[in-house]
Amino acid sequence: MTDTATPGRERLAEDPAFRETHFVVLDFEGTTPKGAPPEPIEVAALGLKHEAGHGPVRSGFSFQALIRPPTHAPVLPFAVKQTGITPADVSGASPAATVLRALDEELPERPVLLVAHHAPVEGNIIYAYREACPRLAYTRIVDTRLLAKHVVSDLPAYDLDALLAHYGIPQPPHRHRAMDDVSVTASLFRTLLTEAARTHVITSLADLVRVSSRRLRAGEPTQLELS
């Protein structure tokens, strides 16, 4: 996203709240036991921060870890086929509460907003482990799926692969591994912000939160970017 001026029109890059916010793009890979909610087997996060003339660029914050699921949620064959993560890969990993506590403690200083594609998946996992990751649990999530629907309203599909194809963003080498998916979601987020800013669909952080964010069930944030 560039900072090209448009006289008489508010620009997203001019909003102090937008410039100060640290966006943390997040993705879980998981396994889904029969009759129970998904359990995470991998998580990755990547920080983006506004840079004048360039928009949100990588901030230097990153986090990646495999997760050992509970005994009731083994890594199922479908998950192995999709992610390449095997039961042996996670057998020595830490459980979700430990990993998410570590991620929570390493989050950048506020103001922070999370970013994910189809954010209810990430939100439900965070809510399930909210006692271990209170900062995550009280931080709003910008959903790039909702953002895409607001920016371009006539696509036949809004899944991640469809949006990558629409915008010509190359598929990552290991699609459905958490860090690769985080990297392309970050690219998609930047692309959507560029288009939203160019067309003045979104001119402030408040606009972005209003049209594309979700609030986790853990509670009501007391400020826009509570983390």
Rank of each mutant, 00 (worst) to 15 (best):
I202G: 03
G123C: 05
V182Y: 02
V184F: 02
R210T: 14
F189K: 01
G60N: 10
Y129G: 01
G219I: 10
L208M: 11
A132T: 06
F18Y: 15
P95H: 03
P111M: 11
S212G: 13
H176W: 07
A137E: 01
E29W: 01
V184T: 11
H22T: 12
E20I: 09
E220H: 12
T86Y: 08
T2P: 06
A88Y: 09
S62W: 05
P33C: 04
T185K: 06
L46W: 09
S62G: 08
L205D: 06
R140N: 00
M1N: 11
A116M: 09
H117S: 02
D143C: 10
A157C: 09
L100G: 05
S227R: 12
G53T: 09
G92S: 04
Q64N: 12
E42G: 03
L163E: 00
R215T: 15
P111W: 11
A132G: 05
D27C: 00
R58P: 09
A45Y: 04
T194Y: 07
P77T: 08
A13D: 14
V57N: 04
I41Y: 00
R9E: 15
V90Y: 00
P37L: 02
G53C: 09
A196T: 09
G53A: 07
E109T: 15
T199V: 10
P74K: 06
T71S: 14
A119S: 13
Q82F: 11
A196G: 13
I67W: 01
S227Q: 12
Y127C: 00
R217V: 07
L164W: 00
L113T: 12
L192Y: 04
L193F: 10
A178S: 13
A17R: 13
H166T: 10
T83Q: 03
L66S: 00
L226S: 12
I125S: 01
V43F: 07
H54L: 12
T144C: 02
L76A: 11
H72D: 12
P108L: 12
H22M: 11
R19Q: 14
D143Y: 06
A45R: 06
F18A: 10
R190Y: 00
S94G: 00
P40F: 01
K34D: 05
V115D: 04
A44K: 02
V24K: 03
R217H: 11
R68T: 09
H117P: 03
D154N: 12
Y129T: 01
A44F: 03
F23Q: 08
S91Q: 13
